[in-house]
Design a protein around this nucleic acid. Sequence first.
DNA 1: CCAGACGTTGTT
DNA 2: GTCTGG
DNA 3: CCAGACGTTGTT
DNA 4: GTCTGG
Length: 227
Amino acid sequence: MCGRFTREWTWEQVHAFSQPLVLEHLGQSNLEPNYNVCPTNIIDTLVMGAHGKVRIVPMRWGLIPAWWKKTLKEFKLATFNARSETVTEKATFRSAFRRHRCIIPASGYYEWEDTPSGKQPHYYTRRNGQLLGFAGIWDEWTDPETGEIIKSCAMLITEPSKFAARYHDRMPVILEPSQFEDWLTAKSGIEVLQPAAEEVLQEHAVSRRVNSSRADRNDHALIEKIA
DNA sequence: CCAGACGTTGTT
DNA sequence: GTCTGG
DNA sequence: CCAGACGTTGTT
DNA sequence: GTCTGG
């Protein structure tokens, strides 16, 4: 589970899909129309701010634990995904899970199908066209080389629903808006880290141009259904 | 008590 | 085969 | 996740 | 940061 979340989304959409919450800074957008999310890229996340309001915070996708002492180059783990089953145990994730929750908005995500002619990407979106909200955790790390404070995050993954299992054996944890507040405030625990209900997602094949990391992120073929 | 370690995901 | 870049 | 690169020696 | 070993 990896790839680009390329559909255009707006603050209005974010607001609509997170109704139980009050968003700060509506209208101030650091979002790009098309949004390329790959390991070690910077993505936007929703985190709990002061006064019960939600903030949008850009973070590195690929969690660096606060206790990491060596340089960024020496951190070679793929920590962009965290297994729900073990997130409370792993040294890299456990403190972030307790204190630093986030929601990662995305218009969709990709899985790949192995075919005789090569890898065929499929794009998963919400059936009702709204954004998806992935359960995430984040941490804050100080780069010993520059002193820079780097926020980074990981998305939680779990077993797939039957629908998602067609192309992969894992899927991101997709939260419903009613779950957002308890998640962000750490009132809910691992019990909410379940596969999405069968009726939540839809899927369609997209251009294999998705397979190139150099694809133009404004290329609408990356999310459009192919014949 | 202190010192020291701690690592993930996805593949086939 | 394996690592890097996106 | 996939695609794409991966290269030496000598020398100035 | 937080858990383990001694």
